[in-house]
Structure formats: structure tokens, C-alpha cells
């Protein structure tokens, strides 16, 4: 079996490793403190920690794409990353 065709690179490997670590963290957190602290956020439906992580990640992906579309050539993508981090904190705080 040969997995050269998967064409791994360091940045993408790091990307998946971070997501994997986030999932492990959530799992450990859930085992330590079960229930996922559900609450009714500003979107008017109940969310748990896992939902909030998902909303953060999905939103972050769209923030990056929109950033590329608007300022892709002029400004660094790290700005989008910063916005995404602020957004994620917001999601964990209020949603």
C-alpha cells in the first residue's frame, strides 16, 4: 500500500492535527464535565460545547473564503484568521 498520492504537506498535516486535538480536548472536557453545558443562545435554540465548536469552525472557513474574495490579493490571510478567532470567542460566549 502506497500513500504518496495523498500528497501530505506540513501545513495541511498541522491543520488536521489541530482539529484532531480540538476534538480530543472536547471529548476529555465532556468526560470530566458531562452534559455539554447546554444553553439557549442568541440564535434561539439550544447548543452544547460541540455545537459551538462546529459553528466556530464552519464560520471560520467562510470568513477565510470571504476574506480571499474581498482582499485576497492585497492583505494577508492572517487578518482573516484573527477575525475568525474573535468570532470563535464570540460564539463560545453568546451562542
Amino acid at each position: 500500500m502506497n500513500f504518496d498520492w495523498m500528497a501530505w504537506t506540513a501545513p495541511t498535516a498541522a491543520f488536521f492535527l489541530i482539529i484532531f486535538c480540538l476534538l480530543v480536548t472536547l471529548t476529555v472536557w465532556e468526560i470530566r464535565n458531562p452534559g455539554g453545558s447546554p444553553r439557549l443562545g442568541i440564535l434561539r435554540f439550544e447548543t452544547t460545547r460541540g455545537d459551538r465548536l462546529f459553528v466556530s469552525l464552519l464560520g471560520a472557513a467562510f470568513i477565510h473564503i470571504i476574506w480571499l474574495a474581498l482582499f485576497g490579493d492585497a492583505l494577508s490571510l492572517w487578518w482573516a484568521f484573527a477575525i475568525a478567532c474573535v468570532y470563535a470567542v464570540g460564539v463560545f460566549r453568546w451562542v
Binding site: D4, W5, M6, A7, T9, P11, T12, F15, F16
Partner: peptide, 21 residues
């Protein structure tokens, strides 16, 4: 998962074939 990871890997690279990226 494996196909999705592969797609992410491909999306940031260019290739002329023979698994050279």
C-alpha cells in the same frame, strides 16, 4: 475522512502528474 484529507492536500498544491506536487 481519507478522501476529504486528500482533497484538502490537493487544494493547496499543483501537480504535473507522477505524484510530484
Amino acid at each position: 475522512v481519507i478522501p476529504l484529507m486528500t482533497v484538502v492536500n490537493y487544494s493547496v498544491q499543483d501537480t504535473f502528474g507522477n505524484n510530484v506536487f
